[in-house]
Each structure stands twice: as structure tokens, then as C-alpha cells.
Simulated assay, not measured.
Amino acid sequence: MTGTGSHTDLIVIGGGPAGCAAARTAAGVGLRSVLIEPDAPCHTLHRIPALDNVLGGHTTGPALARAVAAELAATPLCRPELGRRATGLRAHDDHVTVTLDDGTRHTAPYAVVATGVGPLRPRDVPWITAPPGCDPLPLWLADPRAAEGRTLLVLGGDRPVGTFLRAHPDLRTRLLVAHATGDDHKTDEIRDDPRVTLLPVDHLTLRTVGGAVAAELVGRDGRRRTLRADAVHLSLGSAPTAPPGALVHDADGYCPPAAQHPRVLVAGDLRSARYQRIMTAMGSGGEAALRAYYAACGLSAPPPG
């Protein structure tokens, strides 16, 4: 059943840093927006215990999330639709239509899609063989008290490993970081930490033995070895998430801005795997909103990057 929708100036899909920046920027130039987010604004920032790469003096993800949510609440031209998910996006010659999971349909001249990425699991990567149903907790959700004095096997060398270590500089733990070739450049920031042992692998088979974890590793030199750890956590990186409909995807599932319909503007981590930072997400969200504004005014802007 289709619910009652609305027509507004801009629809923003995704309430992370990019989406919230788009809504704030749109309000700054007088555009009304509807922001669609299945959770709380910037909820993924709560998994980042330490920040050292954003402006504004915020040193933790939760602090930044609270500040962004407060600014969004003080933006009368933005109407958040929290607890709702976009299930369809259609682009027409003169407007876009976004359908929500309750059947509501919103229309606007333009839409900003900033749904970002979600965490990869062992079943999503070819270099890991894991038992059925194996779904370890991401490292950023690990309880540091439970890690004290223990050895943790970390699957993947994505950057949350460095964030975890910076957030708990006095934590006495040992991290065995097994990673594939694609993560080599990401491990530079942790390779000198004495708590880290880097394990470049071609393949890893995960098993559980009693209450412990065992992993059979095949190194890049072809040598085989067995490791044991007290627990296993994930840091495999992310995969793009996007609503179905009028989006063009590349081979990796990302949505390059320049490839999209003129009325669909992509912002944040959904654009590419190369620029996944809070600051670049916010900047791209603001830029996308300005593109919608310039287009509505009949002004041209440079092609999206």
C-alpha cells in the first residue's frame, strides 16, 4: 500500500556524514530536503573510538555523531525520516521518485544518494574459508576489557585496526593480522606497533577448537602454518550499499558520480573505495547539494568527480 509522500526540493538518501552535510548545505541555500535514514544520523560513527582526521575538535566518533545530529535537528528546512529505508529510486526527465519500505513515495527535482558502505564478512572474500554461519564481531566492536592479555586473530588489515590500537594505547593484547594483497598499503600505520604481527596470506581456513580459534594459513611463499588465538575479529573492509533503481554501478559495486542520471547525485563512500574518509564524505555531500541548487537555478557546474 502506498503511503502519503511529499514533493520537496531535494531528497537525501542516507544519513551519514555525506548525507547530513548535503542536507545542511541545501538548507544554507534555501532548499528544503527530506533525509531518509534507517537508523540514527551518523550512527556508524559510533563504532569509531578515536578520531584524528576531522576538523572541529572532535576526538571520538560518538562525539562527532552527536554534534552532527544536533545540527541536523536545528535545520528546519530538513525533514528527517528516520527508521525508514529507500527501496526504490527512479529518475525521470524532470524529477526523481524515491519509494520507502512503508510504501511512501517522495518526489523532488534531484536526489543525493549517500548510503555508503557496509562491512564485508568472511563469506564475501575469496581468500577465507570459514565454517557455515561464521560471523565474527568486527574489531571496532570488540570489548577492550575482554582483549586484555589475550591474542586476537584479525581477518583483514583494513584501517579500523589502527583506529582500535590508537583508541587503546595501553591495552596489552596481541593482534595477529592476516591480510590479503589488497590490504598491503593499509597496514603501514600498524606495522611498527609491537602488539601487531602481520601475516600476509594467500588463503586462510578458519576453525574452532574448543573455546579457541585455529587457522590454517597458506602464506604468499606457499608455506603452510597453523595459528591459534583466543578470539577472532573482522577488519575486512566494506562493500557499497545502494538502493535499487536508477544507479549505475562499476565492476566493484560502487556508483561513480559522473556515470549517473543528471538528477541523481552520488556522495560519500558510495562513490569509490579510494576516498573513504569522514572529511571527504562531508565535502562530497555539500558539493552534491550545491550541484542540485545550481541546476535548479539554471546554472552549470563542473562535471562531478
Rank of each mutant, 00 (worst) to 15 (best):
M1L: 11
T2W: 14
T2A: 13
G5E: 05
D9K: 00
D9G: 06
L10N: 05
I11Y: 11
G16R: 02
P17V: 00
A21G: 07
R24H: 15
T25R: 09
G30D: 05
L31T: 08
S33Y: 08
I36P: 04
I36D: 04
E37R: 05
D39F: 09
A50K: 10
V54S: 06
T59K: 04
A74C: 11
A74V: 06
P80H: 03
P80S: 02
R85G: 05
R85V: 10
R85I: 04
T87A: 04
G88H: 12
R90W: 13
R90K: 13
H95I: 01
V96T: 02
V96H: 08
T97W: 06
H106A: 03
A108S: 03
A108Y: 00
P126H: 05
W127A: 08
T129L: 05
C134W: 15
P138E: 00
P144Q: 06
A146C: 12
R150N: 13
P160G: 00
V161F: 09
F164L: 04
L175K: 05
V177H: 12
D184H: 08
H185M: 04
I190Y: 07
D192V: 14
P200H: 10
G211H: 14
V218G: 01
T226C: 03
A231S: 14
L234D: 07
S238M: 05
A239C: 09
A239Q: 12
A239Y: 07
L247N: 11
L247C: 05
D250G: 14
G253E: 11
H261Y: 02
H261S: 03
M279G: 14
T280L: 03
A281I: 00
G286Q: 10
L290V: 12
L290F: 11
C297M: 11
S300R: 14
S300V: 12
G305Q: 11
G305R: 15
